[in-house]
Design a protein around this nucleic acid. Structure first.
Lengths: 106, 106
DNA sequence: GACTCATTTCGACAATTAGCTAAACGTCTA
DNA sequence: TAGACGTTTAGCTAATTGTCGAAATGAGTC
């Protein structure tokens, strides 16, 4: 839980997650969206991976990143619940993706 | 927004917010709940204040900390909204406090 | 004013973080 | 094998963080 919030505390990493919301993306494409070096981005990816917020899949030469919605969900709403907030049940916004594409559990 | 997530990234500070959820508390009482020095706790309070998550009120010798629910709410659900999540409208859990006590806007 | 209590500020320190370049290392494709 | 893609390591800054003890401040009390 702490690792998730730690991961979310950096704007670059939050933006990566937001990009991933629209669907899985290769590392290079994500990296190109930010004005930092590849090693720096790779470090950000590692933080997200360690927090369980993303998972990787190798597709040929590239490494594809998948957002793990459930982990983000659990951290955010798990914490929110402590404050008496609840989210709408089954009111997840249609993302334009199939449910399997959304989380892409392997 | 970044400052809120930064504030939330520390377990001590998250617990402080949780303690404050039950109502305003003096700095000393909050500090006593953690195995760190007073100056350290004061630094944590400063982070929470800078993020707007808490506000202070002087009451005699002591400084009373109030949770700013709305700020926490906005950050958490503002971010969640980016991912297509919504919270139940007006389904805030009864806290046993009056609405004015909950946020305690001055 | 002096004293006490509560809290913050002040230095200091070690650890962590984000960033860089350069180089090395896998893994796949051509 | 050579290139492309991405990660990792090394070595280096600079800034931030969490922590402390000691001192300073603020507000009430004697």
């Amino acid at each position: 839980m702490s690792s998730v919030f730690k991961a979310l505390s950096d704007p670059t990493r939050r933006k990566v997650l937001e990009m991933l919301r629209k669907g899985p993306k290769p590392a290079g494409e994500l990296a190109d969206a930010f004005p930092v070096s590849k090693p720096t981005m790779s470090a950000h990816f590692a933080v997200l991976r360690d927090a369980g917020l993303v998972e990787t899949e190798r597709q040929g030469k590239q490494v594809i990143y998948h957002l793990q919605m459930s982990v983000l969900e659990d951290a955010l709403f798990g914490f929110a619940k402590t404050f008496g907030w609840e989210r709408k049940d089954d009111e997840r916004q249609p993302s334009g993706l199939t449910p399997s594409e959304e989380t892409h559990h392997e």
